[in-house]
Design a protein around this nucleic acid. Sequence first.
DNA 1: ATTAAATAGTGTATTTTGTACAAGTATATT
DNA 2: AATATACTTGTACAAAATACACTATTTAAT
Lengths: 226, 226
Amino acid sequence: MFKETKTHEVTTDVVIFTIKDGKLKVLLVRRAHEPFKGKWAIPGGFIRISETIDAAALRILKEKTNVQNIYLEQLYTFGDPLRHPTARVITCAYFALIRSDDIVLSFEDNSEITEVEWHPVYNLPPLAFDHKEIIEYSLKRVRERLEFCPIAFQLLPEKFTLTELQKSYELILDKKLDKRNFRKKFLALSILKELDEYTKSGSKRPARLYSFNEITLNSKRGHFFS
Amino acid sequence: MFKETKTHEVTTDVVIFTIKDGKLKVLLVRRAHEPFKGKWAIPGGFIRISETIDAAALRILKEKTNVQNIYLEQLYTFGDPLRHPTARVITCAYFALIRSDDIVLSFEDNSEITEVEWHPVYNLPPLAFDHKEIIEYSLKRVRERLEFCPIAFQLLPEKFTLTELQKSYELILDKKLDKRNFRKKFLALSILKELDEYTKSGSKRPARLYSFNEITLNSKRGHFFS
DNA sequence: ATTAAATAGTGTATTTTGTACAAGTATATT
DNA sequence: AATATACTTGTACAAAATACACTATTTAAT
């Protein structure tokens, strides 16, 4: 298919999750050029020759969201020769969880892209390349991680209610959880700091606010929810 | 460090585990050339331009061990620009578990290599590149997998005793397990076929032989040992 | 034939973890 | 004051994990 003398291109793509408008969303960019011109894709780019892969992924993340210091994990490397129609592009995919508040999406004068937007994970538009598969695999991985460590805290503000925390789990796992069991389990882990503050009851009964203790993962069995 | 016009090279390295002489071992090759001439390394090679990464890893595995149809899983992609002293080489690492019996190690007239040998995982020689890190990470992953699915069966012969099975778990997890609990748990999973055969008591009391049913993973919670 | 040595095999009691499930409490609104 | 809404809390049961010690079968030695 390709000449053996042709070289591989190596990129990184980053699946960026957030919770916005009560939905789990991923950041997508609209492609300005072929292949897949006009199609939505997950943000990505070439890995520079003297840059670690992690650094490249962080760079992509920062270009689009201006966010740094975030949970970013290498997901999988996708390298089917047919995943790109005209070149051999191997992509090392990452995923990240961020809070969507105080984030300004940007193109950064990037002629590669005509739009940047959050899209509901459970209702995606047609995507370029194998990006649908990449997102699905990310979601699977996030769910696995959630069983072991409360990475959902990346999605929440500094101070949050237990209901908000539970909601973030429900959005990721895509199922309802029992309120009493959820609280019991979480409080038993003693990773939450109970604050003496309450939501300024915009609605009904104010809810107590919590924050995370410095995260020290690996509780005995490490499992959270299944 | 490198000129931005220089291209990445992309390889795959495969950590191959086996149990031999009552020890958990990995397959290492001795490098014939610089860099790290004469040092031990895990087997690897360039990914061909029209080959999937999985296919490349399987090819490497077959070149060295003549084994096919084996549990092979992508581990992680290592891409630190400093991991190779003179080039930018990104490697997509895999790991595999195989039975060491009926395996003939081979160089396949490969001038890259002067030796191929099994080495105890818990007592490795100095290794080329970041291969020590890759092996350590493989081991971590194998342990994680072991909690969910009985991949240890890849290490055992067709017919085996419960003691042998337990031993393989103990070697990988590097700790003793309780015999009665181990058996109870495994038998409850009904993935074992109890045979009407026994070890031809080379030593003391003969032990019953078992084989695996067709593996259907994902029992309810999926966990085995911690 | 008896005994010793080695490995195989087995069951119960306790603790921990997971799950199912419903009523009372604090605030805002009317 | 009554009502609506979201917040908070505990117990009983089931399932899973863990701790723990003796008997059984064979070979080898006397």
